Computed example of a mutant assay.
Amino acid sequence: MTYRSIGELTPCQATKETSELGESHAPRQESIDAYNAIEHELKKQFIHLRRDHDKHEPESFAAARGVSDHDLASFSQDDFVLVRVATTAYGIILFGKLRLPALPGAYVHFRAFSEGPDDDALFHSFHTEDKEDEDGHKTFRTLFTEDEPLDWFDA
């Protein structure tokens, strides 16, 4: 698989309810190939996400304060530790979990898409979580732990 532009996504939108989401497992060759195809874009978009969140939701990357962009995005194929694959009517959605070597114990979840095993893979998004407390205060985060499950997310 190779990387394509996100603008080439099919207009269909998969949901958790309309897709068959497989169990979590270690990445197999097809998922590793997809990761390798989008690794550069993952790193680029991860740094972009950090910079954007630092402006508007700084707590989202609070654990990474003092870590350079280069070090934060120093993950590689070896750090791709978990995957879940969803089969949809129009392709395959890959949910991946990446260890962040610069932040021991920190992981990021990403989503990618391909129309099939022989087609180009493309990066879709990172999982960002926002929660609202009872008093209406919102908190944001993008960094997860090893124990947190890799579940369906839309953006």
Results as ranks from 00 to 15, higher is better:
128 T>G: 04
143 L>F: 05
10 T>K: 12
81 V>F: 02
55 K>Q: 15
82 L>H: 06
18 T>F: 02
115 E>V: 04
23 E>T: 14
139 T>I: 00
139 T>Q: 00
152 W>Y: 14
20 E>I: 08
88 T>D: 06
152 W>E: 05
134 E>M: 06
3 Y>M: 11
65 R>C: 09
30 E>W: 09
127 H>E: 14
26 A>N: 06
20 E>R: 13
9 L>H: 09
79 D>F: 05
101 P>H: 02
72 L>M: 11
129 E>T: 11
81 V>K: 10
14 A>R: 00
8 E>Q: 09
33 D>Y: 03
12 C>N: 13
53 H>P: 01
82 L>S: 15
155 A>R: 11
34 A>E: 03
53 H>M: 15
5 S>W: 12
136 G>Q: 00
105 G>L: 01
27 P>H: 07
11 P>G: 07
21 L>H: 02
152 W>F: 13
3 Y>H: 14
20 E>H: 05
62 A>L: 11
42 L>N: 03
48 H>I: 15
145 T>L: 09
128 T>A: 01
148 E>G: 06
105 G>Y: 01
123 F>V: 01
55 K>R: 15
72 L>G: 12
110 F>P: 04
108 V>T: 09
135 D>F: 04
71 D>V: 04
148 E>K: 07
120 D>V: 07
85 V>M: 10
55 K>D: 14
